[in-house]
């Protein structure tokens, strides 16, 4: 083994040691959560063994039933998909325009969105509720979806604009010369190129909508419209908390988000490399 190889092995070991130690601190809570989900309320704080003696797999089933997850789960999937698609379309349109196109007042509009992200609106639930009520959007899916789109909009625009700004423009120029329309450029060139950024936005907003609870409670009345987080509330009373069922519920609730993340992850890894650009060229048929 020459010196170069030793150095490389050492370096890679150090890297992995670093990554693994951070990874451990992240894995511990999820292990703890799943472990707690498999215990009973009596043993959950007493049993110190790493793997508890009796595993209550039934907790997941009970949590699913008691939390009425069936309906809530579907609702959450619906809200998350609708909001995320809405945000990706609306914010990428806006960000594309902010990044590539010219129109008067462009900067004012852009900074307005950025500023909005910064200014928290305490008590805005009062005017918002009154407004939604006047629009007959209280207790409707549509109203809730619109509100949630608004919540994620500013941040997504800022993020996407940053990425659009950085992306090479050659491909767009080529497409424009080929007679592609602006909308076509956005859909066929800019969006596929910005895949890593869009993946980030999808993850960010999915998590946001999936975990959102306050706005849903405020705007929705019917149980049949409530999202998943409503089901989790059943296990945390004002005073008493059923920890194993809560943990089981939280585990169930966390799983789909990790799935979305797993699915989006490859778009982040791929980035601009690995021929994304070439396949794009072959696929593109302008309208």
């Amino acid at each position: 083994m020459d010196q170069y190889q030793v150095k490389r092995i050492l370096k890679s070991t150090a890297t992995h040691a670093f990554l693994l130690s951070v990874a451990l601190t992240c894995l511990f809570p999820i292990f703890w959560m799943v472990r707690s989900a498999l215990m009973t309320n009596e043993t959950v704080f007493i049993d110190k063994s790493l793997i508890p003696a009796s595993l209550q797999f039934g907790n997941f089933y009970t949590a699913w039933l008691e939390g009425n997850f069936g309906v809530y789960f579907l609702n959450s999937v619906l809200y998350t998909t609708a909001v995320v698609i809405g945000i990706v379309l609306i914010s990428s349109l806006a960000a594309y325009s902010f990044s590539r196109l010219q129109f008067p007042g462009k900067n004012i509009f852009f900074y307005m969105f950025v500023a909005a992200m910064m200014i928290p609106l305490p008590g805005s639930f009062v005017p918002l509720y009154v407004l939604m009520n006047n629009l007959h959007l209280v207790n409707t899916r549509f109203g809730y979806i619109l509100c949630m789109i608004n919540v994620g909009l500013s941040l997504s625009i800022l993020l996407l604009k940053t990425f659009f700004d950085k992306m090479p423009q050659d491909l767009e120029n080529a497409a424009r010369i080929d007679g592609c329309s602006k909308l076509g450029l956005w859909w066929h060139v800019a969006l596929p190129l910005a895949r890593p950024a869009i993946a980030v936005i999808v993850i960010f907003n999915s998590l946001n909508v999936w975990n959102e609870y306050i706005l849903a409670t405020l705007l929705l009345n019917d149980k049949s419209l409530m999202p998943l987080q409503r089901g989790l509330m059943v296990f945390q009373g004002a005073h008493s908390v059923d920890y194993p069922l809560l943990m089981a519920g939280l585990t169930i609730a966390a799983a789909p988000i990790l799935l979305v993340y797993l699915f989006m992850q490859k778009h982040i890894i791929k980035g601009l490399s690995s021929g994304a650009v070439i396949t794009l060229d072959k696929r593109t048929k302008y309208f």
Partner: peptide
């Protein structure tokens, strides 16, 4: 060009 940001501005 402005039309691109209209949906966002409306909701906002």
């Amino acid at each position: 060009n402005f039309l691109f940001i209209v949906p966002a501005v409306l909701i906002f």
